[in-house]
Nucleic acid binder design. Structure first.
Lengths: 222, 222
DNA sequence: AGCCTAGGCTTACACTGTAAGCAGGTCAAG
DNA sequence: CTTGACCTGCTTACAGTGTAAGCCTAGGCT
């Protein structure tokens, strides 16, 4: 109606699939996955919700893109490296990437079409194992355990209803506070004498399980 | 308005938290997590959406209840059993329960307050390990690896965009179909020569990783 | 000059969770 | 028996969701 608004043309950096996905990731990181609505993403880009559909075919497509962007952040195993060291590094890198974008874990179970970064990632991991002497079958086994462990660990980490020791104390209080002493004795024990001890960080557990799994894996032909 | 409708009283089995949660679980299982809206749950129970709020304090509370109901289905370790066998059985039972309710995995990362069944479950698991000679610290390690593996495995299983071999073929076709032969060579290799081979079922991988982890765990005092 | 097209905008719709308030039934106390 | 305080379910209403359909305009083409 009013002619005094900004002319529409090309004078601002144009939208693109990448910019849309990046904006969505920012919002998800700042305010949670649920906050990344089409309208909110549009607002961040100074644009209406519907304009996003020129670059993303649906919200689902956008989510696919976000997950793929997270995979793109994971360090690929170096082709020459020993498989064990390569797997160790990639595990840490994956955990870090997923930790940086906690919303990604919850998205994974509903994504249907893997993106380019995701495929490249898995291909590189398989490549590292195959070059390290793993048979196809053993490589499949190895990928399955490792990925399960990594995703599951992050899933649990993200699901923890507290971020620091103080909050952990509050949560424990909330659970055990008004319960008879003899309910959940082992849970109580581990909370009081271990998890709530100063210096405890659940994240440190990652190392243990990873080492256990890596030591259990062996290529067939030695 | 019209007086000809059913009188409101106690003549039908009354609603209850359990019935609401059960109805929600049924709908989620049949039509997916997203289909379990308050209105749909109400409809299944022959009731309006708002009536559910007399038994559940919010949608979040309902989701908490659903997750807890899944945990309730997991077999608790028998007090007398050897820890290794107990952990093995519990792992299979957990995977089966989560497989029966695939929506549960995606819910776990956003639930904040564990329910009674969940707490009882974790307590029993810890108890089994402690009785088997694990120190507190080692028990914490063991639970962390095992749970990570189980949840992560199911997460991947659920995320697979196919349910049977035929669909798997379609998906592979969709990915590799219009791509140069040399893209993702290792992925291609494992798909063609392993995953698409007759008789392959990703679920079978579970056994391998579980055995690997269980063999890597050892109580401190032997 | 005229036209096409890409990328924005506007409007509209069906559907979500839930706040607020109402109505009929149950049950305990007077 | 009456009264009144719960319950429990119903109705209405609201803000917020994803997205289909169609419009408008600037830029680039012939």
């Amino acid at each position: 109606m009013s002619p005094d608004r900004q002319p529409r043309g090309r004078q601002k950096t144009p939208l693109s699939r990448e910019r849309v996905i990046a904006a969505a990731m920012e919002i998800a990181s700042e305010k949670g996955r649920a906050a990344a609505t089409m309208r909110a993403i549009g607002a961040r880009l100074g644009v209406e919700a519907m304009s996003l559909y020129n670059h993303v075919s649906s919200r689902d497509d956008l989510l696919d893109g976000m997950v793929d962007a997270v995979f793109a952040e994971i360090e690929l195993p170096e082709p020459g490296a020993h498989w064990k060291e390569a797997m160790r590094r990639r595990a840490f890198s994956a955990r870090a990437a997923l930790g940086r974008h906690p919303w990604a874990v919850g998205l994974m179970d509903s994504r249907s079409r893997p993106g380019d970064a995701t495929l490249r990632h898995h291909d590189a991991v398989l490549g590292s194992l195959r070059s390290g002497g793993f048979s196809i079958r053993q490589a499949a086994h190895a990928v399955s355990v490792l990925d399960s462990y990594i995703y599951g660990f992050v899933l649990q980490e993200v699901a923890l209803p507290f971020g620091n020791a103080e909050e952990a104390g509050d949560v424990a209080e909330g659970i055990f506070g008004d319960l008879p002493e003899d309910r959940y004795p082992y849970l109580r024990e581990i909370a009081m004498e271990h998890a709530l001890a100063p210096g405890y960080d659940y994240g440190d557990e990652f190392e243990f399980g990873l080492a256990l799994i890596l030591d259990g894996l062996v290529p067939d032909e030695v």
